[in-house]
Design a binder for these strands. Structure first.
Length: 578
RNA sequence: GCGCCAGUAGCUCAGGUGGAUAGAGCAACAGCCUUCUAAGCUGUGGGCCGCAGGUUCGAGUCCUGCCUGGCGCGCCA
């Protein structure tokens, strides 16, 4: 399609005295498929030719007709637009072959490295729907960049350090039970955490003790460290279980504690650069220009508190220095909620002040919050939904639906499919909208199996596999053989499917450009919906017409290949049966 | 008070670089299973694109001001 576009650009440019680039910019897609494949709006020529755009469109259509027909391009005027229609059979044939060979995507990012910081939950708390967003968005981005040929380092910056562990240590010393901790894991830790917070309201000295306990941790007190290590291990085991269910993996779990002994060195870098200013007893880096700090609209970036302790910002700077050494990244993505936008703005501004070449390579990828009844979820307050409860409920419903459809056989297989459907719907629900949108958690919405859902996509994919099974059964040739010798595409009705397939590469590039997995999610909905509409009216298996059967099977296989590839980009494993 | 983000159908949302009659899903209503999975398909109704100016041949899209909501504004991470 690209070569045809170039041909059109060249001809219009030469005939209308426009720059080729100018023509390419002006070209658009008609709003509906039946109007054509490409359109040139004639408005810019109105002044030059001193005629109304519709007149110009008609003239151009006539002038181009013969020339373009030779290339298999039909052109016609439609109001002020000049619309072009390509040879769909030829294009579809090409796309079919590419889709079946898996060569629709080209790796433009080859050789470049992206570090993606995502998921990053605080340990000692159960995995909630709030943690899911960073996890699913980051995971999808990791697949999207990898598909474009980037080298991807997936980093889980665990929240495994800070005063909350002082609190937990205090709670454990007061009421802790090692046997229960070993048996119950995170829920038990949370119980202790909630209790210590409750009791601290009446006994403020507990907060004091918690600060002291965290100080012990930082100073390397063996007993405190031993407890902390157990908390961390128990939590990590639990998270890895959840990540396995979600199909998410990481290359590094270097979290906050990992940078503990690198912070002083990081602060020393700022010191040497002369960026640190003493302010109200704390050490800060001013946000604005060095010569006019008083003009700052933005608050300064605090590096060291007045009591000498380091801050979150100092830790993040240490992490960036380390990651630069470790990965020499071309891009560093922080998949962290939008409330932290200011924090990252400040940290990145400090990098700029240090005149570091990689300052511009660091990007915050914000996303909206998961709310419950319009409020932020809070583990401590108890108004929180846990991911696993949602998975269980979704599984139960999927299983019930499967039993309703068929009194089938294999319960182990059923359970696996139900689990997949549950995870697919939850991940897709999280990714289908622009990431900046807040999500007010709603059971009926996330469990809804109809409409724009992960289940809808899986259903389309599973039905294709149903056709494949039947094709292998009824037709003389196995469907897999079609992959090696793709059929010609003769039916115009399959064009909407190929029109969707043709956009896969540009959608992928767009998704990476904006760090927006929902672009892929929307693309898949378009593709699946085009397929579902086609499926009703076009029967694939037909023993009396093996040639047509073969052609349609090829079309369906092409759709399947793209659908499966797209689902995997989102971190969803395509199902062959449901 | 300042900053960031959002405001499109009853609800949830799509609408690269400004272009043709603003699109989906849910909900509602009406149809479609003797044929490859009805978790599907087809159709109907439903819109001062927050408001007001401006730029332009042309604005949901760009600029300015305002309104509403969310989040954030140094010793939590």
């Amino acid at each position: 399609m690209h070569d045809l576009t170039e041909f059109i650009c060249e001809r219009i440019a030469s005939l209308c005295a426009l720059a080729r680039e100018e023509v390419r910019q002006a070209l658009t897609r008609p709003p509906r498929l039946d109007m054509g494949d490409l359109a040139f709006p004639c408005f810019p020529l109105a002044k030059q030719r001193k005629k109304a755009p519709p007149v110009i469109a008609r003239e151009l259509a006539e002038e181009f007709a013969a020339d373009f027909a030779a290339q298999g391009i039909r052109c016609e005027a439609a109001g002020p637009y000049l619309n072009f229609r390509f040879d769909h059979c030829m294009l579809a044939g090409r796309l079919l072959a590419q889709a079946l060979a898996g060569s629709l995507l080209s790796g433009a990012g080859q050789g470049r490295t992206v570090v993606i910081d995502y998921s990053s939950p605080n340990i000692a708390k159960p995995f909630s729907m709030g943690h899911l967003r960073s996890t699913s968005i980051g995971n999808a981005l990791s697949h999207i960049y990898a598909a474009l040929g980037w080298k991807v380092a997936r980093v889980n910056h665990l929240g495994d350090w800070g005063t909350q562990f002082g609190k937990l240590i205090v709670a454990f010393r007061l009421w802790g039970d090692r046997a229960r901790l070993a048996n119950e894991g995170i829920p038990y830790l949370m119980e202790l955490y909630v209790r210590v917070n409750d009791e601290a309201k009446a006994r403020p000295e507990l907060d004091e003790e918690a600060r002291a306990a965290f100080k012990q941790l930082e100073d390397g007190d063996t007993a405190a460290l031993e407890l902390w290590k157990i908390f961390r291990e128990v939590s990590l085991a639990e998270f890895e279980r959840i990540y396995a269910i979600l199909g998410v993996a990481f290359d590094s779990y270097a979290g906050e504690s990992f940078y503990n002994d690198r912070i002083e060195a990081a602060i020393a870098v700022l010191e040497r650069a002369g960026l640190l200013i003493r302010s109200e007893g704390a050490l800060v880096v001013a946000a604005g220009e060095p010569d006019a700090p008083e003009k700052d609209a933005a608050p300064p970036c605090m590096i060291r508190k007045s009591d000498g302790a380091s801050t979150y910002a100092a830790r993040d700077l240490a992490a960036i220095f380390y990651r630069w050494q470790e990965y020499a990244f071309d891009r560093l993505l922080y998949v962290v909620g939008s409330p932290q936008a200011l924090h990252f703005k400040q940290v990145f501004a400090v990098l700029k002040k240090l005149d570091l070449a990689y300052a511009d390579r660091c990007v915050h990828i914000p996303f909206g919050q998961v709310l419950l009844n319009g409020e932020m979820m809070s583990t401590r307050k108890g108004n929180v939904i846990f991911l696993e409860d949602v998975i269980k409920e979704a599984e139960t419903r999927a299983l019930a639906k499967m039993r309703e459809n068929s009194e089938s056989s294999d319960t182990a297989c059923e359970a696996e499919i139900a689990r997949n459907l549950a995870v697919s719907s939850i991940i897709f629900y999280d990714l289908k909208n622009g990431r900046i949108k807040d999500v007010d958690f709603n059971w009926e919405e996330i469990l809804n199996p109809h409409g724009e859902t992960g289940i809808y996509l899986q259903y389309a994919h599973a039905r294709i596999h149903g056709i494949m099974r039947k094709y292998d059964e009824r037709m003389s040739e196995p469907s897999a053989a079609i992959i090696n010798s793709p059929p010609r595409v003769t039916e115009e009705e399959s064009w909407p499917l190929f029109d969707a397939i043709a956009r896969f590469q540009e959608k992928l590039a767009l998704a990476a450009e904006h760090n927006e997995p929902s672009v892929i999610a929307r693309f898949l909905l378009d593709l699946a919906s085009a397929f579902s509409a086609w499926y009703r009216v076009h029967r694939v298996i037909n023993e009396d017409n093996p040639v047509l059967s073969r052609e349609r099977m090829g079309v369906v296989l092409a759709v399947r290949a793209v659908l499966a590839q797209g689902l995997r980009l989102l971190g969803i494993t395509p199902l062959e049966k449901m």
